[in-house]
Simulated scan of single mutants.
Amino acid sequence: MRMLDGVAPLAERYDGFILDLWGVVHDGRQPYPGVADALGRLKAAGKRIAFLSNAPRRSFVVDALLTGMGLDRALWDGTMTSGELAWRHLKHRDRADFAALGTRALHIGPERDLSVPAETGLVLVDRAEDAEFVLNTGPEPARGNTDIEPYRAALTACAARHLPMVCVNPDRHVMVGDQRVLCAGALADLYLALGGPMAIEIGKPDPACYPPVLELLGLSDRSRIVAIGDSPHTDLAGAQAAGIDAVWALTGLAAHAHGATPDPERLAAEAAAEGVRPVATLAALRW
């Protein structure tokens, strides 16, 4: 597996870049060193850049977060999130599984994710007895984001009523600074273990995420597009399923798992275990 220190060699091969956000562009608090410079150099070279994130909130919310971190909005061409995709399905009921959900949802997640049910016709309720499905966007401040046990009672009540779940972030964990925290996917796993009937996961690694991103890029030749992400299970697997080359960023979750001096053989073994074949690894999103 080719090991790259920065993205400059990729600029020679690809016209479009699909970048994961959390763990690649930023750590949940601030951009990684060198990111703004790398994005600027790619744009100056005429490259198209889109962000594809499993963030459980709409794209405009994420764009505002990024500019709030100090990134210039001119550095990327568009953003697609799992929250944006879920909002579209809830709004338009364009899939059979969403059409069957009903309109009364028990939301598990923080207030910052309320852009997902907004303007969809959903009524948010507080009790499982009043709900037709569970809208899971991740852990809440009151119950915490490091221990799954505070969610067991609520999920047990929902499973007892056989409520379907919409999981708006298939990630199981993410790094916030140097802390590993829960994501909605971990709650979905517990829900199924408790007897929940189904969890509809919206986001990577579903290859259906990628056509909307190609529209943002304005590119159709997938052989000239590369996706960069830190998670083999979501970022790399999703790109591979969509027929797009993938590069494994050794930041975020990968840095947590493999440290500052990753072992190439261990990286290869983990990729093989996930069934993915990244074209290279990337030390960081820098030039």
Rank of each mutant, 00 (worst) to 15 (best):
N145C: 04
E132G: 13
A128M: 02
A153P: 02
A142E: 09
G138T: 03
A118K: 09
R143P: 00
P117V: 11
F133M: 07
R127I: 01
A118T: 02
E149R: 11
A160D: 07
V125S: 15
T156C: 14
G138C: 13
T137M: 12
R161N: 07
A153K: 12
P141S: 09
A160P: 03
E132Q: 14
P150T: 12
P141R: 13
R127L: 01
T156I: 05
E140C: 01
L163G: 05
T146E: 01
L124M: 15
L122Y: 11
L122N: 08
L124S: 14
F133C: 06
T120D: 15
E140Q: 07
A153V: 15
E129D: 12
R127Q: 09
E119Q: 13
R143H: 03
A131D: 00
A128V: 05
L163M: 03
D130I: 03
R143D: 04
V123A: 08
C158K: 13
G121N: 14
E132C: 05
A153F: 13
L135H: 10
T137F: 06
T146D: 00
L155A: 09
D126E: 13
A118Y: 02
A131F: 00
P139R: 11
P117S: 10
A157Y: 01
R152S: 08
E119H: 12
N136A: 07
F133S: 06
L163R: 10
T120S: 15
